[in-house]
Design a protein around this nucleic acid. Structure first.
Length: 204
DNA sequence: TAGGTCAACGAGCCGG
DNA sequence: CCGGCTCGTTGACCTA
């Protein structure tokens, strides 16, 4: 995988920007038809793209080299572009510096990489999505672990409480050391036991 | 061949 | 209104 870890600094449960509502059905209506062998039907946008892409249809299934694979669209519908190692590395470096680009930076990067500004834009969009996905996964793991710790702690405290009740603590015992981590103290006014959690707070 | 990856896209939201 | 963003999805390609 890519080294996304450096982008993940802490718990940030991203819930997205606005109240985004999925719209599956409408999306399918407008999807370009998968062409496969119908290679004479150009999708309008890709027709435009192909103007800048020299395609050798005989080589469509070959692994493209580092120098040519920015131009590997075919003569029909969407053909998957693979960015070269150099292009990916440069985009990655740029992303480390800033996860969003202004139009000037975008165009400059596109020129530098021999890509279209739109391609750079899409790459950054997808890259942010991947980062967010990874962060969500990290957050999920963190919360899972935290929840487990709390459950353990809860179980332990319940057990201690049971033990305490079994001991029938008298008012003369003002301070009882229950374990290494928990200290119970007697409230002078209400004569009830309370837990000192100073030591607990420091733990995780 | 099933499942994963990723470039690309459309829809909808938001701020200027 | 427009540009830029996120989200959800598609489809080509890769690989175990």
């Amino acid at each position: 995988m890519e080294n996304d870890e450096e982008c993940i600094t802490g718990l940030s449960l991203g819930l997205g920007m606005g109240g985004h509502v999925p719209k599956k059905d409408k999306q399918k209506e407008n999807k370009p038809v998968a062409c496969l062998d119908l290679s004479f039907q150009l999708c309008p946008k890709e027709e435009a793209m192909n103007e800048n892409h020299n395609i050798d249809s005989d080589n469509l299934n070959e692994k493209s080299t580092d120098s040519d694979n920015s131009n590997n669209n075919n003569n029909g519908c969407r053909k998957k572009l693979r960015l070269s190692k150099e292009q990916s590395a440069m985009l990655e470096n740029s992303f480390k510096l800033h996860s969003t680009l202004n139009p000037v930076q975008k165009q400059a990067l596109a020129d530098q990489l021999n890509l279209k500004a739109r391609q750079v834009e899409v790459w950054f969009q997808n890259r942010r999505a991947r980062t967010k996905l990874k962060q969500t996964e990290v957050d999920r793991e963190f919360l899972k672990k935290h929840c487990q710790n709390l459950s353990d702690e809860n179980r332990r405290l319940k057990r201690e409480l049971q033990e305490l009740r079994a001991l029938k603590v008298g008012p003369s015992q003002l301070c009882i050391q229950l374990s290494k981590t928990t200290t119970l103290t007697m409230c002078s006014s209400c004569q009830k036991l309370g837990k000192s959690n100073i030591e607990l707070e420091g733990r995780n």
